[in-house]
Design a protein around this nucleic acid. Structure first.
Lengths: 317, 317
DNA sequence: TTTGATTATGACAATTCCTGTCACTATTAT
DNA sequence: ATAATAGTGACAGGAATTGTCATAATCAAA
């Protein structure tokens, strides 16, 4: 293999295995150790952050910085990526430790000048606004880690002005409108709840034995939750605008069906305990939804509407 | 210069000048044209999308795909970038032509397997939700282009259900809560206005002479709009839960006031044209809100509730 | 039509550079 | 101590790279 190709491949190999010895590479590439040493020095000069230790169990490391091989991005893609990263900056809390600005700088640095110029022109003309909240969510990393590795957390949670202790097992986190939320199984309620992350005042790993929720994640959680519960069947017709409103609600994804023309319907099972929640939500959709089933839900809606009417009727204008 | 370094440098040179001839490069690198030809063929084999034309005015092109030189990103940075791009996908319209999913795929493709694995684990556990509210905004590119290059656009704009023709000179675009907006100078009003991009039904370059707004951009426009709009006063008492629900709606931030005990109230001016929107929203809050003012809003609520009631009453269970 | 600019390809000798080997040294875990 | 590891320098042989020349093909413009 010619050297130029070997170097490129070595770049990737070295990034795959982050720890390796000279001999390993020598065998893999079919060249002598001396050559590998020379190559590694060249990679080093090219900016690959290598670090070596002598002695048994020694060898080469790639420092935490990894080299991305040359990627072919179109101009449009590069610009899009730039603004994607820039949009991230607006979030006051993120589940990653990084300051995304460092990634942004590097990316910008490496752009060819003409793309840089294009970005400069656009920078002050395009923005992705995420409302800045005072509320920061310091426990995102822990929550995410618990969701990935199936751990139970003991948290102190503030709801309705009161602090309470809970044991929860998160299934993920998401941000919406500048706030972070974590759907999780709550051991106190013995059911799934959504927690607002800025209301979580402390979070620690708990010794409790976790459930197996590996198959439950953000996209399918609504399906799984109610399997063994007492449920009623929901069927509701949606106008185009109703569909759009529902699309913004993550937890409805599994119930939402969309037709070609933009309209659609909601169909699925609702836990009896959630009926009131659904009732309120469906009322919020106003005339964009026509609930056809089940009777329980319809009754709930009518009852709630009646209460509202009487509440507003009693009010002087 | 050894070949391996020359190739890497050539990769970048070739991306800088997107059009070049063999002789140019030969001079620049101090090697013969024959060598350059051989090198270019190698670059081609390495994936750089080169295209050549013979004859006078011929030469080499790089196709729109550009090669990004190897960049050193830390693991955290790489993960952050991945999710930044993924978050972009939620936007129904973007001012770039790209499908951001192609960028996402490439990026993912080139990640070392261990980072890929980490991303896989996180993919279904983290989400950046952008509400998909309304119809898409097809004219973003034109608006952005006009903002950058100081052009005047003739648009047809829908406001309060009526279409009107306007000449505007955009100073930028931004997205907030799933909708795109463009602050612009409106020649009809002779003042700055913010336009909702999905309400812009057509946009064409106009021959009108543009103003010099180069120094006005998203960050420094203080010149605000809407002070002179026709508004009504809203005052509504909120329960603790009502407060929490409102906190999730960032567009309410300026109206929302919270008491120590967690309850609060909404107070502020609402444009007449927005009353219906507020009515629907307030109904969605159910009993967590007590609207006390203004009469127009209360009437709106009662009317809408009455419609809902009759809609559901007409339904057989 | 001719001319000149351009890419494209092949052959070959000159030469550069790359590579392996060997002989060392230094460090460190066991 | 011993073995495993990195690191350096020198050198000869071999492999890859390079320049030159010859030759084609294409195309724009004079």
């Amino acid at each position: 293999m010619p050297k130029s190709k070997r170097l490129l491949e070595m770049m990737m190999t070295v990034n795959r295995k982050r720890k390796f010895t000279v001999k390993e590479l020598a065998d893999e590439f079919g060249v002598s150790g001396r050559t590998i040493l020379r190559d590694l020095q060249e990679l080093s000069e090219l900016g690959v952050p290598l670090y070596s230790e002598v002695g048994p169990h020694g060898g080469y490391h790639v420092l935490k910085e990894r080299i991305l091989p040359p990627i072919a991005f179109s101009e449009e893609e590069a610009v899009a990526i730039f603004f994607a990263i820039q949009a991230l900056r607006h979030h006051s809390s993120l589940p990653f430790k990084t300051e995304s600005s460092s990634a942004l700088n590097k990316f910008y640095q490496f752009m060819p000048p003409d793309i840089r110029e294009r970005i400069d022109q656009m920078k002050r003309r395009v923005d992705f606004v995420t409302p800045k909240r005072q509320a920061s969510s310091p426990h995102l990393s822990i929550l995410l880690d618990a969701a990935i590795h199936q751990k139970v957390l003991g948290i102190t949670y503030e709801s309705r002005g009161q602090q309470s202790k809970r044991d929860i097992q998160p299934i993920g986190i998401y941000t919406k409108n500048g706030l972070w939320y974590s759907p999780a199984y709550c051991y106190q309620y013995q059911d799934f709840r959504v927690f607002r992350c800025d209301r979580i005042h402390s979070a620690e790993q708990s010794a409790a034995k976790p459930l197996d929720l590996r198959d439950i994640h953000l996209e399918n959680r609504q399906i799984k939750t109610g399997v063994d519960q007492d449920t009623v069947h929901l069927f509701a017709e949606l106008t185009t605008e109703g569909v759009q409103a529902c699309e913004a609600e993550h937890w409805l994804a599994s119930m939402l069906h969309v037709r070609q023309d933009g309209s659609g319907w909601l169909e699925g099972n609702v836990a009896r305990s959630d009926i009131l929640y659904f009732v309120k939500f469906l009322i919020g959709l106003g005339k964009e939804v026509t609930v056809q089933h089940s009777p329980e839900i319809l009754d709930g809606i009518k009852a709630y509407l009646a209460e509202l009417i009487s509440m507003y009727a009693g009010m002087r204008r």
